[in-house]
Design a protein around this nucleic acid. Structure first.
Lengths: 209, 209
DNA sequence: ACTGCATGTGTACAAGTGTTCACTAATGTG
DNA sequence: CACATTAGTGAACACTTGTACACATGCAGT
């Protein structure tokens, strides 16, 4: 034989995950993907699937883990580039939009998974969002922002921010990848949402709750 | 034969739509449903499907229309019961939660459709949400609330409110139908989200935008 | 009363599905 | 080097799937 099976271990595994993502990127819903379909897209024989995943749900779970990495990269970049609190919101939204465009399929998968059919995937994505929110809370504390808020209220605020951004994700993903005008609109609107939330947080009275 | 085909016209159609909803309610994702599966659940022969729908996407679209009716009912009830602006948010959230519980499958379908694979269904749901937001804006104007906001800013506010509520929907649907404690938690948290948004709107300066 | 038309049924078929099994090449550890 | 393990292959299975066709029935309008 030529060179079909001279591959590093784990390569097929990645090919399968990428294949699933690619199909999602092409507009398919993850829940409707089949094992054969994914292996076909990956250029691999159906049986190979079972060497790496127990089922489609299993593959989904492992995708969630990788999604976590993507999110962490995004956070790191945001922390590095947003130095002064001045244009904090605008810049963060910009970074978010850029990452969403660069990893379209990943975020598509995330948006689908939130209401998907695997409870485990759902919970995984939710958990990533919680982590994201708690990191955001840390950052705000570190930047000495919103110091008048109780921990609980800061938590609510960050949760609301993350949800708002996540929802904007679905806006972003439902428009064409290179419709710059519409992308700009989403960015602008999301920024306004967040500004309004932060005005709310700034004028919030944690004591009188 | 006995009485199998002595049905009023359109009855099978409804049976098929209910069947699809029922499957969604059982945890399945709409995108993964097949024609045969739905007809089986409806107790109808597969070929009957084509008498009423061209495809699954078509059925989805018609479900979106019905979803619109459900939302309108909910709005009507909210308008009837929320008389004074005092407990406005709390009561509205309560009504929303009650409706979401009463029409679980419908709202499940809505949550799924937002990131679903049919572009048409997606757009339909989005359009329902826009309508809902614009009605909310009307109501706020009528109640002489948020009068300092420009039309554009009021629009942003209402959009944000609707998104927040819609996201809470996914929280609500991911917990058990009769876990009253958790349902209460979601209700409380959603109320806080909305309060924070409204504090933001109240302190928003439309001129300095 | 006759005739279309909408609605429903049963059969049929080719294609696609998940999964099992037995087999082979490559890899890393003693 | 020998050998167990891992990652890959292809053929086969029992089903399920979407869709087409021909046929039966009830109802509406003439």
């Amino acid at each position: 034989m030529a060179d079909k099976q001279r591959r590093k271990p784990g390569e097929t595994r990645e090919k399968l995950m990428s294949a699933a993502l690619a199909l999602v990127g092409k507009g398919r819903h993850f829940a409707s993907l089949g094992i054969r379909e994914v292996t076909r897209q990956a250029g691999v024989v159906p049986t190979s699937f079972y060497r790496h995943f127990r089922s489609m749900d299993d593959l989904g779970l492992q995708l969630v883990d990788e999604l976590g990495l993507v999110l962490r990269r995004m956070m790191r970049e945001a922390r590095a580039n947003v130095l002064q609190a001045d244009k904090l919101i605008e810049e963060s939204v910009g970074i978010f939009v850029a990452h969403a465009q660069a990893n379209r399929s990943f975020f598509l998968f995330m948006a689908q998974g939130l209401a998907g059919e695997s409870r485990a995937v759902q919970e995984g994505i939710r958990s990533e969002m919680r982590f994201f929110a708690s990191e955001l809370a840390n950052d705000l504390r570190r930047l000495r922002l919103m110091e008048h808020l109780s921990d609980a209220d800061l938590d609510v605020t960050c949760d609301l921010v993350v949800r708002t951004v996540a929802f904007s994700l679905t806006d972003l993903l439902s428009i064409s990848e290179d419709d710059d005008y519409q992308i700009g609109q989403v960015r602008k609107r999301t920024t306004r949402f967040l500004q309004m939330v932060f005005v709310g947080a700034a004028n919030w009275n944690s004591d009188s709750a």
